[in-house]
């Protein structure tokens, strides 16, 4: 008993130290960025007030907050439009990217025929394509959706294609020995092997879908067909309404953060049991 308790004691000093360090880290993780935020807001506020910067050059944080409240009727519907645009683009990018990736890996002919065009679609700057889409597609929303989709789908396609091809060779041999069908191979071996790659692509595509949506709104919204937040932002800049502009900008950033959090959550849920990226290392 005596020996045992002294043994626990020696562990305890170390354990205590680590526990303390962890506790401090846990708090610091929130306190530090919050402090930076508050400080920046203060500096921003005082810079604007002391130098009497006119609000059409740089509005203070209070002015931005005020615009957010007064223009909420404009901003919120615009946020919803941009959100819908981004999410639809992402869903279509997932569908298109995955279907094409499966087709590529199932048939070399399909891959040879279409991969170069997938690359061309990717490397052509969407901002150059958007005006054309605006001409050919009647609905501004649909045209913007196509733009955002073009930007978002490639990382999903290329990542999923690599992932589907990355199954362990011995496992592939094992599947051959057990006489697995093509479908079984895809379903039980290639698809789970591709999952971490797909999720990597999804994380990139989430961000890109928003960027694509914003770019599309800039170009397509310019024709007077106001769409979402980015159109609102652009319009506000023409009117020198910088309070609203900043409010829209902040909402776009927040949307990006929300997308990032959702993607991280999906990644965690899908991979937590087995993939290295989701594992916490002991010590």
């Amino acid at each position: 008993m005596n020996a045992k308790s002294s043994f626990t004691l020696t562990i305890d000093t170390d354990e205590l130290k680590r526990a303390r360090r962890e506790r401090i880290n846990r708090i610091a993780k929130w306190i530090l960025p919050s402090t930076v935020l508050v400080l920046s807001l203060f500096i921003w506020h005082f810079y604007v007030t002391i130098n009497e910067v006119p609000h059409y050059i740089l509005p203070g944080p209070l002015k931005v907050a005020e615009s957010t409240v007064t223009d909420w009727e404009i901003l919120w519907p615009a946020t919803l439009v941009t959100w819908r645009l981004t999410m639809w683009a992402l869903v279509m990018a997932v569908a298109g990217g995955v279907i094409l990736a499966v087709a590529f890996t199932q048939s070399r002919w399909v891959e040879m025929s279409f991969f170069p065009y997938a690359v061309i679609l990717q490397v052509t700057p969407v901002i150059a394509v958007a005006p054309l889409l605006q001409i050919y597609v009647d609905s501004a929303f649909l045209a913007a959706l196509l733009c955002a989709w073009i930007v978002a789908f490639f990382p999903i396609l290329s990542n999923t294609t690599i992932g589907l091809k990355s199954a362990d060779h011995n496992l592939q041999d094992l599947f051959s020995i057990y006489g697995a069908t093509r479908w079984q191979r895809l379903r039980y071996l290639a698809a789970p092997s591709a999952l971490p790659f797909f999720i990597g692509g999804l994380k990139i595509a989430g961000g890109l879908a928003l960027i694509g949506a914003v770019v599309a709104e800039f170009v397509i919204g310019r024709a007077g067909t106001g769409l979402g937040l980015a159109s609102t932002l652009l319009e506000a800049s023409y009117r020198f309404n910088f309070g609203r502009l900043y409010a829209a900008l902040i909402l776009i950033s927040l949307m990006g953060v929300v997308i990032f959090v959702i993607m991280s959550l999906i990644s965690h849920l899908a991979l937590r049991h087995w993939h290295e990226s989701a594992l916490k290392r002991e010590q």
Binding site: D168, N170, L171, D173, L174, I177, G179, Y188, L189, P192, L195, H273, W274, H275
Partner: peptide, 15 residues
């Protein structure tokens, strides 16, 4: 159909 194989690596599906 009557055979099975064990490789040098365990060759398990990690998922």
């Amino acid at each position: 159909d009557d055979l099975s194989i064990v490789f040098q690596e365990p060759t398990l599906m990690p998922w």
